[in-house]
Amino acid sequence: MDKTRKIWQKAKETATDKEAMKSTLTKAGNKLKSLAENSRELRELKTKLEILLRMFQSHINGEYRAFPVSTIVLIVFALVYFITPTDLIPDFIPALGFTDDATVVLLIVKKLNRDIKKFYKWEDEQWEEAD
């Protein structure tokens, strides 16, 4: 549990530092690209992480500011947890390494469901305005 507490503290610190947010976004994006898509679970994890990355990127860029601070901290926590190789179940353990990452990400996505729906609506409006 101590590792989770440390990751939570890092997420709170990261959420208040624009350079740390950018670094986290880059690291999470790079790690996401490296995941194989040979299982349904990993494909689902990638899909959920992609929306969190888009939400976070839009926040960092100042394009979408409707997120409460708690949402940003939860997004950052999910991304920091994902990029931390030695969390509860270290990523190098075959077949199990991403189990805890997926669980954390999926729980946070579920918790942020309302914010995600609003963000999807905003994205759709951006596409419509671009046409």
Rank of each mutant, 00 (worst) to 15 (best):
N30L: 13
T47R: 15
L42F: 09
K46C: 10
M55D: 08
L32H: 12
R54E: 14
T26W: 12
S34A: 14
T24C: 14
A36F: 05
R43L: 08
R54P: 00
R43N: 00
S39M: 10
E37V: 07
L42E: 12
E41F: 00
T24F: 06
L45F: 07
I51G: 02
N38Y: 02
K48D: 15
L42N: 10
A36K: 01
K33W: 01
G29N: 13
K31F: 04
K31P: 00
L52P: 10
N38M: 04
L53T: 10
L25C: 07
R40G: 03
F56K: 04
M55F: 03
L53W: 02
L45G: 10
L25E: 15
K48V: 08
T47G: 07
L53D: 05
K27A: 09
K33R: 05
R54Y: 12
M55T: 08
S23Q: 12
E37D: 08
L45K: 03
E37Q: 06
L35Q: 06
L42P: 04
F56T: 12
K31Y: 11
L53G: 02
L25V: 00
L53I: 15
N38R: 06
A36P: 03
N38K: 02
L52V: 04
E50L: 07
I51T: 15
L42S: 06
L35V: 03
A28D: 02
N30T: 01
K48C: 10
N38G: 10
N30C: 06
E44R: 07
R40W: 10
L45P: 12
R43V: 01
K46G: 04
L49C: 09
S34W: 04
R40H: 08
K33Y: 06
S23D: 15
E41V: 00
A28E: 01
E41G: 06
K27E: 15
S34H: 04
E44D: 14
G29K: 03
T26K: 15
I51K: 13
E44G: 02
S34P: 00
E41N: 08
L32P: 02
K27G: 05
L52R: 11
S39G: 13
K27R: 13
K31A: 07
L45E: 05
L45C: 01
F56P: 02
A28N: 13
G29S: 11
S39Q: 05
K31G: 05
K48R: 15
L45R: 00
A28V: 03
L49H: 05
K48N: 15
E44K: 13
S23Y: 13
K46E: 02
L32Q: 07
A28S: 10
R54I: 04
N30I: 06
S23N: 13
K33C: 03
